[in-house]
Amino acid sequence: MHQYYKYTGFYSFVWKSIKKAIIPILLFVGALFALDRFVLDIEETLVMVTETYSPIVILSIFFASESLLGLIPPELFIAWAGKSASPILYLSFLAVASYVGGIVSYYIGRGITKIPSVHEAMELKLAQHIKNTRKWGGFLIIVGALLPIPFSITSIAAGIINFPFSSYLMFGLLRFVRFYLYALVIFEMV
């Protein structure tokens, strides 16, 4: 398996992708620490949000975010769940919302390819990238499900490359693992 990945260029593909993701992740973590230390107390804000807004509103906002581009980090919602009356229940609702939002994103990706100009651009300009993504799609979905990369973007990409839906659903289940593992850390911090 190692030889196959080495010959096909998988390792260099993953390394380039990781190099692109490291700086945004570090910037986000740094911004969160700076925000918490110098601007506002995140824990206090989470308590205020928990007391002010109904769980349905918060879960709906999270579902919308996970269905579109995943612009709001799930870690904030996981921290919110930790401050709620039933942390494990709301964490489970968040994981389900993220998983279902990923499915919506998958179908958004499938719909995007039906736009003639997008289809043409994919075939001409992104042919090699799409070939690699199809080749290693399962691994990329696993990375998107477990790491702090927007899962909706990974799901849209899976839809665009027409990754087998049943395999997508199976790999996407790792999203639940991510939520519970991250909760172990985040619940202790807030």
Rank of each mutant, 00 (worst) to 15 (best):
P164F: 09
V104M: 08
F165M: 00
F63R: 06
L124H: 03
E51M: 14
S167P: 00
M48E: 02
I42N: 05
S60Q: 10
G144I: 10
Q3I: 07
V104P: 04
V49I: 15
E66Q: 13
Q3E: 12
I18P: 02
A85G: 04
F10Y: 09
V29A: 14
A121K: 07
I42E: 04
I186A: 06
L169G: 03
S65E: 04
I18C: 12
V49N: 05
I115S: 02
A121H: 08
K20R: 11
P148S: 09
G30S: 13
L69D: 01
A34T: 12
I78A: 07
R178C: 08
A97T: 05
L140M: 11
L71V: 14
S98G: 13
F33L: 15
L181D: 07
L184H: 05
K135L: 10
S98M: 07
V39I: 09
A121D: 11
I153P: 04
E188W: 05
I61P: 08
L40V: 13
Y11V: 01
A95L: 10
M1Q: 11
I160C: 06
F38I: 02
L91C: 07
M170T: 12
R178T: 02
F139G: 13
A127T: 09
G102V: 01
G9P: 07
A85I: 12
A64F: 09
S155Y: 07
L91H: 01
V190A: 02
E44L: 00
V57R: 13
F10R: 01
V185E: 00
A158L: 06
I58G: 10
I88E: 01
Y168Q: 04
M122C: 12
F28A: 14
S98Y: 09
I58T: 13
I130E: 00
